[in-house]
């Protein structure tokens, strides 16, 4: 589903609150910056040592000393600054970052997150993810609902080594939004266009309850329509 990532990024951006300091993981989470709603002003921290990350520089204006943690060229907005890695993680671990958005391999019923290594796979390393899930006040997991083999990433219990225990607060996929509460556990709050409550139940292994005011067709309509149009053009 080619538009899944856009759907997720667009919906994730709706979580942003004015004035928040946020950190976006590499890949899909970085796309969230493209969908910040009008009237919402957020400050983006990048863990390699910058705060106030702005738009990408114009072609030809890239600077090797101004890049994000994924090595993409950046600019800083007014008020931004640079700092060293020990200071950057003082910000992150110290609870000064309001919210982080990270992709994952697995997330489970207890809010455990596994996003850095597949057993038997190649080791890349956790980078700053363990510090981010520990230190950020709200941890948003932004991920496609299922892995490539079709199995649910929203599991009863993570089987891969954890990035953080009991840290996930919100899960945003192309199909649904779930939020975790201290006593109720995971609550299904929104279902995307093109999916039913039964669809979500069929592709979700972690236990959850459905919110009384669950929103159906809550998001993803634009992408679903675009996908449908594209498929009809292709004669599929």
């Amino acid at each position: 589903m080619g538009n899944a990532k856009q759907t997720i990024a667009r919906r994730a951006a709706q979580e942003l609150r004015d004035g928040q300091i946020i950190n976006l993981g590499i890949g899909l989470p970085t796309m969230i910056a493209n969908y910040v709603p009008a009237g919402i002003d957020v400050v983006i921290q990048t863990e390699n040592g910058g705060i106030g990350v702005g738009p990408a520089p114009a072609p030809g204006c890239e600077d090797r000393d101004r890049a994000n943690a994924g090595n993409q060229p950046i600019t800083l907005v007014a008020g931004g600054s640079y700092f060293d890695s020990a200071t950057s993680f003082a910000m992150i671990r110290g609870g000064h970052v309001d919210s982080t958005f990270l992709g994952t391999l697995q997330v489970d019923e207890e809010g455990n997150i596994a996003n850095w290594i597949v057993p038997g796979g190649l080791l890349a390393g956790m980078g700053g993810a363990m510090d981010l899930v520990t230190g950020a006040k709200i941890v948003h997991i932004v991920t496609e609902h299922c892995a490539r083999d079709g199995s649910s990433k929203l599991m009863q219990r993570c089987t891969f080594p954890l990035t953080g225990a009991n840290e996930a607060d919100v899960i945003i996929t192309e199909r649904a939004v779930l939020r975790r509460f201290a006593h109720r556990g995971w609550v299904l709050e929104e279902v995307a266009a093109g999916y039913s409550l039964a669809d979500i139940a069929a592709c979700t292994e972690l236990a959850y309850t459905v919110a009384d005011d669950v929103k159906l067709d809550a998001f993803g309509a634009d992408e679903a329509a675009a996908e449908k149009a594209a498929r009809s053009v292709l004669g599929l």
């Binding site: 390699n48 040592g49 950046i74 640079y82 200071t87 950057s88």
Partner: peptide
């Protein structure tokens, strides 16, 4: 810029 990073520690 961001070249300060681990150079300081």
């Amino acid at each position: 810029g961001t070249s300060r990073n681990f150079n300081v520690p």
